[in-house]
């Protein structure tokens, strides 16, 4: 025991060190989220939280399950690959509750011009017109049915 005669202060210090380590472990247990480290150095539960956020655009499959007539008309025209909500806007609420939430009819003067106004910056093959010259104010749907826009496909519906 002789060699530990003057070592008391060292044991007290070691004791403090062990105590601090235990406190660290206890605090860590309560502070670190349960799912931290599940997949990597982050909170695994965050993935599920982000995936659970609500959607606003229902997707064209949802539209087509009811509006099969429009889907059929559209599938034969130039707009076959333009999805419904690209023009009609976000309609998840309408898909959830079709009776009380009804979408507004889009304004073709704004809508058609957005894609089809001529500018040299657009790809060459894309159909473009100068709205002023092309129709001088006559609404687009007078000649073009938006769901199948070729002129011989008929006028407004």
């Amino acid at each position: 025991m002789n060699q530990f005669k003057d070592a008391g202060h060292l044991f007290r210090f070691a004791g403090l060190f062990v105590l601090a380590f235990l406190v660290f472990l206890v605090v860590r247990h309560f502070v670190v989220p349960k799912s931290f480290g599940e997949y990597g150095h982050y909170r695994g539960a965050a993935i599920g939280e982000i995936a659970a956020l609500p959607i606003h655009y229902a997707g064209h499959q949802a539209c087509e399950s009811c509006h099969s007539d429009v889907a059929d008309l559209k599938s034969h025209g130039k707009h076959a690959h333009v999805n419904c909500e690209a023009c009609h806007g976000a309609l998840e609420k309408h898909a959830e509750d079709p009776t009380s939430v009804t979408p507004k009819l889009p304004d073709t003067a704004v809508l058609c011009a957005r894609c089809h106004t001529a500018t040299a910056a657009k790809p060459k093959g894309f159909p473009q017109v100068d709205p002023e010259q092309h129709s001088s104010g006559v609404p687009c749907q007078t000649c073009h049915q938006p769901h199948s826009p070729a002129v011989d496909a008929g006028g407004a519906k």
């Binding site: 982000i50 956020l53 909500e85 894309f126």
Partner: peptide, 23 residues
């Protein structure tokens, strides 16, 4: 951008892809 993680995990495409008129 989360690549619309809340959509792609439900089998939908992203909002931007869904609404791109030219693909």
């Amino acid at each position: 951008c989360t690549l619309c993680y809340h959509r792609i995990t439900k089998g939908l495409t992203t909002a931007c892809c869904e609404n791109c008129p030219t693909g």
